[in-house]
Nucleic acid binder design. Structure first.
Length: 266
DNA sequence: CGCAGCGCCTGAAGGC
DNA sequence: TGCCTTCAGGCGCTGC
């Protein structure tokens, strides 16, 4: 599932290829999740930005083309349109190349809105500071976490205290910080530790080109390498790398969380 | 407004 | 071998 490191990897690859390009044509799957991709036809891409897990192409007509990759989404630039039943949207550029959006499970979404008008994208509108931006501070993070009594893992995945964290990197950060995923309140020192762990987990993932468990591919179609560096996610039953006790997994709020009962006490 | 619960999707994996 | 069930989960929506 694409989280901040995967989306940022794609952004860095797409940016030099898309900047300055005019969108000549577009076609999409019939779902209203994807049809807004067609609204960008005629506009020129000024820059490719990212906020949390949202990729945002800034257009020269004062609008933004917003893409969320969901669970299985990927973007690639290709000289010819791939014959692939899972391409849900594509844009033809003025250099005759194509930007193709592939999404097997159709959990992703595409929007085209006036700049900054995110009422149609509530999660983007309401999300906290991007995890790799200077706005993500230990103080603000602790304050944001104190506003809710939900489980810490649920809060991390809500995108509100910080934007860009999904289950993989959230699991890694909680393990690294020694915090139980079901904890409902954490101390200031624990919040500071978790803040550092979130940044570290995401930067490590980015340095490794993202995590490919099954579907993730970057804009060149390559797999990430961070799946080999995961300490906790997907390792239930295997020994904790700190204390050798077998890692456990439990379902909290409809998602599977892996943790070490020894290193991450309640 | 916060939050719990459900639905969206499909391929893979496991049971029989 | 083949059919059926379960699972993965980010996010939008509904209703309390």
């Amino acid at each position: 599932m694409p989280e901040l490191p995967e989306v940022e990897t794609i952004r860095r690859q797409l940016s030099p290829r898309l900047e300055g390009r005019r969108i000549r044509a577009a076609r999409t799957h019939e779902s209203e999740k994807f049809t807004p991709a067609q609204d960008a036809v005629g506009a020129r891409v000024r820059a490719v930005d990212r906020r949390g897990k949202y990729l945002i192409a800034l257009l020269d007509d004062g609008r933004e083309l917003i893409v969320h990759l969901g669970m299985t989404g990927s973007l690639a630039i290709t000289p010819a349109l791939p014959r692939d039943p899972y391409v849900r949207a594509w844009w033809q550029l003025d250099d005759n190349e194509f930007l193709a959006y592939r999404d097997v499970r159709r959990f992703g979404r595409i929007h085209c809105v006036p700049s900054g008008h995110y009422s149609a994208v509530p999660t983007l509108a309401g999300q906290g500071p991007d995890a790799l931006s200077p706005d993500f501070t230990p103080e603000g993070f602790h304050l944001a976490l104190r506003k809710s009594r939900r489980r810490i893992a649920t809060q991390l995945l809500s995108q509100k205290p910080v934007a860009g964290v999904g289950n993989i990197y959230g699991t890694e950060a909680l393990w690294a910080a020694g915090i139980h995923p079901a904890a409902r309140q954490i101390s200031r020192p624990a919040a500071e530790k978790l803040h550092a762990a979130v940044v570290q987990a995401l930067e490590a993932g980015l340095a490794n080109g993202g995590t490919t468990l099954r579907d993730y591919r970057n804009a060149k179609g390559e797999r990430g390498r961070h799946q080999h560096a995961l300490a906790c996610y997907g390792r239930s039953g295997q020994p904790c790398l700190r204390c050798a006790r077998p890692l456990q997994h439990r379902r909290y709020d409809a998602r599977t969380l892996t943790f070490c009962a020894g290193c991450q006490p309640r």
